[in-house]
Amino acid sequence: MRKLDHILIIDDDQVNSLFSQIILEDADVAETASVCYSVPEALDFLQSASTSHDTVFPDLILLDLIMPGLSGFDFLDRYYQLDYNKTQEAQICAFTSYGNEEHLEKLRKYDVIIGLTPKPLSVLNLQNILSKCTYKYL
């Protein structure tokens, strides 16, 4: 199987982010795995990736929904306002400890969302996420 070029983790929990990075590196599913610890940091990162040749725009984003300040839903709204859903091929998997029906209902309006997976990331959850990706990896 072909590796993804870039996976971005957006999660304010540094321990969980490190654990997720280790899972991604051990699974060897991407050339690069990056981490942003807040929505503003992630939006700045994506802005840079969309305008620079130094950073590849992520193929897959693992997005924590519940973060202090701006939430994962705020990120998704801004992502759509910036038209990344139209200009980029990234797919997003919501990543949360607190998944519920209300979250699922809110996520349905975003066509870039390929699922909701619980924290912490596991190899099985990662395989499930990758099976939903509609490009490159499969």
Rank of each mutant, 00 (worst) to 15 (best):
S131V: 02
T55H: 08
L60S: 04
D11L: 09
R108G: 08
L124R: 10
Y80F: 10
L63T: 12
Q14V: 13
L138C: 07
I10F: 12
R108S: 07
L107W: 01
A94P: 07
L70T: 15
S71F: 14
T55Q: 12
H53P: 01
S131N: 02
E102T: 12
V15I: 14
T96V: 07
H103V: 08
S52G: 06
F19L: 14
I22D: 13
V35K: 09
S52E: 03
L4P: 00
A30I: 02
I23Y: 06
A94Q: 01
D74F: 02
T87H: 07
Q47Y: 12
T32V: 12
Y84G: 01
T55N: 05
P58S: 11
D59H: 02
G72K: 01
L121A: 00
K106M: 06
Q88M: 03
I114W: 00
L70V: 13
D77S: 15
L18E: 14
Y137T: 01
F57Y: 05
H53A: 09
Y80T: 07
D11S: 06
Q127C: 03
Y98M: 11
C133L: 05
S71Y: 15
S50K: 03
L60T: 09
E105G: 07
Y98E: 15
F95M: 00
F45N: 07
I129V: 10
D54A: 15
L126Q: 10
F95R: 02
I92M: 06
I92L: 04
P58D: 08
D54M: 15
D111W: 08
Q91K: 11
M67F: 13
V123S: 08
Y135H: 11
P118G: 12
Y98L: 15
S48D: 09
L138F: 10
Q91W: 02
A27V: 04
R2C: 02
V56Q: 11
K3Y: 07
D77G: 14
L8S: 03
G69W: 15
E41R: 11
L124V: 14
D5V: 05
T134Y: 04
L63A: 10
E102L: 14
Q47V: 07
T55F: 05
D83N: 12
D54S: 12
C133G: 03
N100T: 08
E41T: 11
D64F: 02
F19V: 14
L130E: 00
L63K: 12
S34H: 07
D44L: 01
H6A: 12
T55C: 08
E25K: 00
K136M: 03
E25H: 02
N85L: 13
L8K: 01
C36D: 01
